[in-house]
Simulated scan of single mutants.
Amino acid sequence: MRYLLGLLLCIGMAGCSVSIEGDIYKQQTPEFSLEQFFTGEVKAWGIVQNRSGEVLQRFTVDISGTKDGNVLVLDERFTYSLGEGPASRIWRITPQTNGTYTGQASDILDVATGTPYGNAFNFTYSMDLPVDDTTYTVAFDDWFWALDNDTLMNRSYIKKFGLVMAEVTIFMQRQ
């Protein structure tokens, strides 16, 4: 009986996790270029939902992308119509010789790792996320998909102990 309960618990917990295989997007078009899409002005609209699907935040982001040598600098300015969050974030994203990317921002722990997959791009990183009076160290599994050359969808899975605790959905459009 104990074994059966343990097995059911493991199956149930696995259902709370998300695992996307990037290789299935390698042949899909349009091909997504991080530098090409984000160099210039981008407008974004998004929401954050908790595990039960309740919308906790609604926001817009004005993103200004510039190049500093081979480094892509993204200056993000957030406006919230529901909830609270950071007012700004500046990413510094650097291409690596193996085709991947590394990224850094002041509220990101260590270094973010980015991998392109045809029309998709995956960014993974950890951050300390303030919620009410507590701060949680969480992992972001951040996926971008090009819908066309000027429109992008972003889906982020915020995980704690490997379980999805919240999801972020953002649509972005080049201006």
Rank of each mutant, 00 (worst) to 15 (best):
E54P: 00
G103M: 09
I108P: 00
L56G: 00
D68S: 15
S52W: 02
A112F: 03
P86Q: 10
S81E: 09
W91M: 02
T100N: 14
N122I: 04
D68Q: 15
V42I: 15
V55A: 07
A87W: 07
S52Y: 04
K67Y: 01
T66A: 09
T97M: 13
R89N: 05
G53M: 10
S88Q: 10
K43I: 15
D107G: 10
E35R: 12
A44I: 12
V71I: 13
F78E: 03
W45D: 13
T113I: 08
T124F: 01
F123G: 02
F121I: 05
A105I: 03
T97F: 12
S106R: 15
L109T: 02
R89T: 07
S106V: 13
T102V: 11
A120I: 04
Q96V: 07
G53L: 06
I90K: 11
E41H: 15
D68F: 02
N98E: 12
L74K: 02
F59L: 06
V73S: 02
K43V: 15
L82M: 13
P95L: 10
D107T: 11
K43E: 14
A120T: 08
P95D: 09
N98L: 08
E31Y: 02
Y80R: 03
K67I: 03
N70Y: 01
L34W: 03
F38P: 03
K67F: 02
E76C: 00
I63T: 13
K67T: 03
T97Y: 12
N70T: 10
E31H: 09
L82Y: 08
Q49A: 09
F123R: 08
A105W: 07
T97S: 15
D107P: 01
A112H: 03
V55K: 08
V73W: 00
W91P: 00
N50R: 11
E35M: 09
G118L: 09
V111G: 00
T79E: 09
Y80E: 04
G40C: 07
Y101R: 13
E41R: 11
W45A: 14
